[in-house]
Design a binder for these strands. Structure first.
Lengths: 341, 341
DNA sequence: CACTAAACTTTACACCCGTAAATTTTCTGT
DNA sequence: ACAGAAAATTTACGGGTGTAAAGTTTAGTG
């Protein structure tokens, strides 16, 4: 590595003895220049530390290599895991993923979308806040940027990829009814369409099986799900307000909080003899297998959702026609039987 | 909102009746133009949807408003939480945080640093991988970009902010020795300097108190800590290989896995009568309070670390002289007594 | 109303790279 | 060795904004 700092492509052209337009071609696609030229450039790159200025590049390219990823709450292990998978797929495809979190707030989601749009990304993968999203803002964004919506099905963009909540909730309700007392449904005020869909499906599934649906709704409006599960769970147990000894939670985080509540109240959770409660969740969060007892739940197919989302986005970016209809891809949940129910 | 799309600042200058240099000043700092002018600009902004092109802005500014945040593993709840706090502080200060994760891999860390550097950020807050970081790459980065290192004290950059592991481990070792059988130390191959420091401090603390230190090291080299805690915990319990009934884990994630192992082996964890094991952790991870039983641990001061890191970075960015010496800020841990030990 | 400082406008150039067009060099196959 | 193709070079312009310099308008003061 030589002392001299290269400040722009012009200088690098001088020291490498390659013309600037050829260098520009090379940096855009190394395969587009002759092998001998490529070797000369690359040996120069080893001597002089130079990288093209990203801002100047993107200013002129209609199509940047940026892909925006927006999630409602990055500290939620579900989204953390989805982002991890998606990022990897983007990187491996030569894109540059940029992650934004709405931190659960409408205003920050709008900000993130605005910032993202001004980055002129090739495309975006977004999981909207849902209920508290500013619909028109999100819609306008999707009209400007090729976008795949995942997880939370806000009716915008050209495609949606997510979990088939009707199938997955049906699966676990069937299981719970088949193996013990029919479940009640434990939920908090829904933050997105998934939560509503899950509750409605629970009700329908119970009715289909000839049982009386019983929904337990507790307060709490932020993203601190385990806390809500714990606090409200403690209260419900104290007040003996749970209408069934089998509790299906709207999601795993709530279930983990509820399991903690049961533990602290001295109630044994599980399906064996001597157990007072059965608790089941939904999602198969990364932490679900480490609760005590491990959580029976329905696994969302994280990898399938991530892969299909990215796949469709790449098609959109490549200008492939996906037809007039808005595409919807639902992946089936998979029953994960552990000790809690 | 009017139909016509504004394509650049020139056009916006025409429609708003304000000259382009004044607009440029306004977008850089709204307070730098006269109130009447500001009002005219802002009323025009309501009519015409215009935002300056980020790429063109940053191409000319030596100092961008971008702040890079790099963590070793974004799905780790500790880092997810740190990123959440840091992002908020940056946004509130008018900066534009960009988050990168090394996904636990040296190569991706190097990539992220390279990408980040080419963004010409005003500054960066990085938690290096540590042991598997490419020291020279990280060092070179910190020479180019004002950087605050947090959590993992790689000896680079102008400042480090993190937890005082000597104090915090001393605290919990004291507590455990005072209230029951002296602890053994449960660790996996250290991924960063913190893990080493914690083990060494454990050994010293035990010797200081006149006890025989006993370190249980298990294999496992990735970031799947709970899994390691569970699998190796099951093995150790089966083989009766734990040298003490009190186990201090290198971090909370390991402890949560170990608690799950104890539960699955039918061992009661806690400090009451009838308990077979005491298990303690370190960090006060967001999930520590929801384990069964809730985890006794030492809380890192997340907020203090985030705030001090950002504060120092802003000073660095403002060109304040922090002196020749590399600054090191250690925050004290706080004992969090719950039911597990 | 005159004076002054602050704020604004006009003009012009810079930043770094993409890219098109015309020209020259190099490679490929016979 | 030679024609034709492929690839490189030279030249030139454009993109959207920052910013400096010089000139003009505005606001504030007495």
């Amino acid at each position: 590595m030589v002392e001299k700092r290269i400040r722009n492509m012009e200088e690098f052209a001088t020291v490498s003895g390659i013309s600037r337009p050829t260098l520009s071609k090379y940096f855009h696609d190394p395969g587009s220049v002759r092998a001998t030229t490529r070797e000369r450039i690359e040996s120069a790159l080893e001597q002089y530390d130079y990288r093209p200025n990203i801002f100047a590049i993107n200013q002129n390219r209609k199509l940047t290599k940026t892909i925006g990823i927006l999630v409602p709450y990055l500290s939620d292990p579900f989204f953390a895991e989805m982002v991890r998978l998606i990022e990897r797929l983007c990187i491996d495809a030569g894109y540059w993923p940029v992650v934004f979190s709405a931190h659960g707030e409408t205003e920050l989601e709008n900000n993130a979308l605005a910032t993202l749009e001004s980055l002129r990304p090739a495309g975006a993968l977004i999981a909207p806040l849902g209920r508290s999203s500013d619909f028109e803002v999100v819609e306008r964004f999707t009209e400007e940027v090729p976008t795949v919506v995942f997880d939370s099905n806000l009716e915008v963009g050209k495609a949606f990829v997510g979990n088939d909540n009707v199938q997955s909730i049906g699966l676990i309700v069937d299981y719970l009814c088949r193996t013990g007392e029919p479940p009640c449904f434990f939920e908090m005020p829904p933050v997105n369409p998934n939560a509503n869909r899950r509750r409605d499906t629970y009700v329908q599934s119970m009715e289909r099986l000839g049982h009386q649906p019983q929904v337990v709704s507790v307060r709490g409006g932020d993203w601190d799900f385990e806390r809500i599960g714990l606090d409200e769970g403690m209260r419900l147990i104290s007040e003996r307000a749970l209408p069934s000894d089998t509790i299906l939670c709207s999601n795993d985080r709530l279930a983990i909080g509820l399991i903690a509540a049961a533990y602290q109240k001295g109630l044994r959770v599980g399906h064996g003899p001597g157990c007072a409660l059965r608790i089941a969740g939904h999602d198969d969060h990364p932490w679900a297998q480490f609760s005590c007892p491990p959580l029976t739940t329905v696994a969302q197919d994280y990898r399938a959702v991530a892969e299909r989302s990215v796949e469709i986005l790449f098609k959109l970016i490549d200008g492939e026609d996906l037809g007039e209809e808005r595409q919807m891809h639902y992946f089936q949940g998979r029953l994960v039987l552990r000790a809690s129910a």
